[in-house]
Design a protein around this nucleic acid. Sequence first.
DNA 1: TTATTATATAAGCAAATACTTATCGATAGC
DNA 2: GCTATCGATAAGTATTTGCTTATATAATAA
Lengths: 109, 109
Amino acid sequence: MDYSQMELYLKAVGDHNRMLILKYLMKEALCICEFTELLDMTQPAISQHMRKLKAAELVMEEKRGRWTIWSLNTRHPQYPILLHLLSLLPEPERTIESLAAEGKRVICE
Amino acid sequence: MDYSQMELYLKAVGDHNRMLILKYLMKEALCICEFTELLDMTQPAISQHMRKLKAAELVMEEKRGRWTIWSLNTRHPQYPILLHLLSLLPEPERTIESLAAEGKRVICE
DNA sequence: TTATTATATAAGCAAATACTTATCGATAGC
DNA sequence: GCTATCGATAAGTATTTGCTTATATAATAA
């Protein structure tokens, strides 16, 4: 891995909101609309974060109908390091379940 | 480690020039004036990078006369991860030895 | 077809970042 | 004391970043 790739990689991970996104993706694949609820951000903001994560090859996207399902790229050479770094972070307070309790569950299919 | 600390940590490491600085520090403790030659940067630029690295507790400084000797903080809880990340990067082309060959060795004492 | 939904993209903006030059403080040597 | 050197800090600047709102694209539903 050269210095530019490493910089891309560390900058992709090194953002509060993207760490949250990656934390959520450790548990399950999710679509953009679910992230907008989980992070309380606009849809374009989430899309742009996913673009950054994808540029660093940290995530994969799968188009399913209208939805784009995002998941961690487990084949990334540094995937084990990513898991380790994420394991150092606390679980996000908001979850899909807690959103469901508020009646905000996004069904996505 | 909370999200803010992790962000500070990853942003400190996630810069091309700071990765070079850390790479050099893996081999030996160095002073600011040596880095200015190794990275071909101005002295204030190096000082500012060291300040960022220190804020993330990645490096330690020791005042010795006029010089400040910088070294890796081997006591940092995530020091092993840092070493692993740095090990993925190629050795810098310029070295203290190659500078010596150009007659640019900074003696520092 | 037309409307709705999920996402991507474009353009604009404020804040952060990585430099620069200029200057200040502290130490060492004369 | 005076001067030179190492380093920190301040101020200025161009670029990057992370958002915003507005709009475009594509798939589903009516």
